[in-house]
Design a protein around this nucleic acid. Sequence first.
DNA 1: GAAGGCCTGGAA
DNA 2: TTCCAGGCCTTC
Length: 269
Amino acid sequence: MPELPEAETLARQLQKTLAGRTVLHVKILRDSVLKSGRAETFEKFLSGRKIEKAARRGKFIVLFFENGCKVWVHLGMTGQLMWDRGVDESHVHAIFEFADGGKLVYRDIRRFGGLVIEKNGEGLTEGIKKLGAEPLEISAEALKSGFGKRKGRIKNLLMNQRILAGLGNIYADESLFRAGIDPRKRPYRLTPEKWAALHRAIRQVLNESIEAGGSSIDDYRHLDGKRGEFQKRHRVYGRAGKPCRSCGAVIRRIVLSGRSTFFCPKCQF
DNA sequence: GAAGGCCTGGAA
DNA sequence: TTCCAGGCCTTC
């Protein structure tokens, strides 16, 4: 599932490929992927416009245009951005055609993702406006205070984009494993040592994954169609029934708020 | 704070 | 044929 490292990987690749290129046309093949704006809006405001840069915010990829417009891309679960790959045309919802002939294809099989166009600061969805802190920038103190006195389980709170923007199921589980924290734990019960460990673990896991080009479990691909490599280094996610890589205990799978949750019953407490 | 719905493809 | 994956929004 595309989370922060996957969005970051794509944003970096898009920066290299798209910065300085000019959009010729924007073809929206399925209007329902537009979370703000309409097909005509995309064409009107973006055609003939140069892309200045590509960046990431939370799990979103943001394209900055010279006229101040921004396009926010959320990949949902199965979203893909491909450069010049016309091979698989199924589930293609939008195509950005460039003046020099290249094209950026947006695919999303399950359609949980979407596109947002921001112009003059307008058009942002509530989800974007209320995005929480960046996990790689937040201080240890702010991480702790960000959870305040919330009563939820730490795993679910880590995935709350309004608190921390960018962690999903995979990296929440992987971070908690490295911090030695039981995903069912309530935040107010964490010791100072565990908070420090969690802050460290989040940075470590995200940075390692970015270095590996993200995790390709099912559909996530790089701009050129290649797979990420970090899934090979997951220590708990998707490893139910297998031995813990640290202690050998059997990794457990439970369901928290309807989401699969993987942890080591011995290393995490 | 928890649960349902969206959506599709692949596995059971 | 049914179930499951889950990000995010809506509803309870």
